[in-house]
Amino acid sequence: MSDHRISRTFPDSEGDAVHTLAPLVLDGTPAVIGTHGDGSLWTCDLTTGERLPRDIDLDDAAPEEPVPDAEGTIWDDEDEDFEDEKGKPDAYEVLHQLTATRLDGRPVLVTGGGRFDLTALLGEDYLGGAVRCWDLTTGEKIGKTVTGHGLGVTALTTVPSARGPLVLSSSEEGLLLVSALASGERIAEIRGSYNGVMTASVVDGRPVAVTGGHDPRVEVWDALTGEAVGGHRTTGTHVDAIAVTELAGRAVMLTAGDDNELRMWDLITGEPLGAPLSGHAGSIQAITLAGERPIAVTEAADEPPLVWDLTRSEQLGGALTAPDEHSPTAVTATEINGEPVAVTGHADGTIRIWNIATS
């Protein structure tokens, strides 16, 4: 029996598993951009289901500036000694993390590389994921490749600021890099927790980043200066997922970790708000927000997503379980005609849209 919340189902003729999903708007129409496990990139119109391949110029993925290897030796694009060692980009590694936004009115894709992103390009002595911005219409890279992560990018987002839109990326070693979306210019470098998770938002008129990870705390940072905003906020458990929203005019932080619960905190004071929200059997690994209410969609390994009304601090309906399906391979949330929806990708390539406003 089909779940009544499934509003649309878009099968994939190729049957390849969906690896990642991110929402975007194309020509005024809600869509998602995603990848398959082989690194192939595509967009899907959420009103018609039309799925189109997207190409980006991976030949331009290499960094423009010198990059040190694990022992401090510098790779330089202009050094003849390194000319013969150049490799080819690995699409899967380049597209390890992705998000979409707009720059000067055009849709752009931002990608964060996996642990072996630079290895494929520069050789086995180099590790780390680079951050790149791409024009989604032309496929051309925008600005410089951002390097500095010693391991893979674990979280990636964009946020507006007085200096223009920013890209924030955190990595396995806990390094948070802030760069200008249009140019790739480094704005700030912040040391967070190992296995870094991160989100960003505008709070009281300034862009802030919130970081967590292996340590039982989260920290708030001014994204333009790299300076801490207040002291750290203790969570009592390491943090696997973070989100920031606003409830009743108050900036609110959502965290989740290995205690399998979703918690809400006052972002400024660190004061807990209400009782933890329980429902997952395993550790929550991602939190996605949609709608003005707002509504949160949470993911845990090998479990279907759950939906939460944050204003009422309660779960909305049951898990998002498709008939005869395992848990989805990718999840995101967005809006269609002003209504919040969850979008799930599955092992057979199917994409489903779920009405979650009244789950």
Rank of each mutant, 00 (worst) to 15 (best):
G139Q: 08
I242F: 12
H214F: 04
A223Q: 05
L168H: 04
R217A: 10
D222C: 03
G196H: 05
G212N: 07
A182P: 12
V178F: 03
S169D: 12
A223E: 06
A180F: 00
R115W: 00
G139H: 05
T119K: 13
L127V: 00
V239H: 05
G230C: 02
V131T: 10
R217P: 01
G113Y: 02
A130F: 03
R206K: 15
L136I: 05
T145Q: 07
D125R: 12
G139L: 01
A188K: 03
F116P: 01
G212A: 08
V229I: 13
G150N: 14
T235C: 06
D204H: 11
T138E: 14
T157E: 13
V167W: 03
Y126S: 10
N195P: 00
H232A: 05
G112W: 05
G114W: 06
T234C: 00
V210N: 03
A155M: 05
H149F: 01
D204L: 01
H149T: 09
E140S: 11
G236L: 14
I142M: 02
G114R: 12
G236H: 12
E189I: 04
V244I: 15
G192R: 11
R163T: 13
V146P: 04
P207R: 11
D215E: 14
A228Q: 14
P216C: 09
G112A: 04
G226T: 02
Y126Q: 08
G231C: 04
P216Q: 09
L122M: 01
G231M: 01
G205F: 07
D215H: 11
S201F: 08
S179M: 08
H232L: 01
K141Q: 15
Y126E: 09
G212T: 07
D125Y: 06
S201M: 06
H238S: 14
E189S: 13
D125N: 13
R163L: 11
G174I: 02
A223N: 11
G113F: 07
H149M: 02
E173K: 12
R191W: 09
L224F: 02
A155K: 09
G184K: 06
Y126I: 04
V153E: 10
L118H: 03
V153I: 15
L224D: 14
N195K: 03
L176N: 07
V153M: 13
P207Q: 09
V167H: 09
T138C: 02
P216S: 00
M198T: 10
G192L: 05
L181I: 10
T154L: 15
T211C: 07
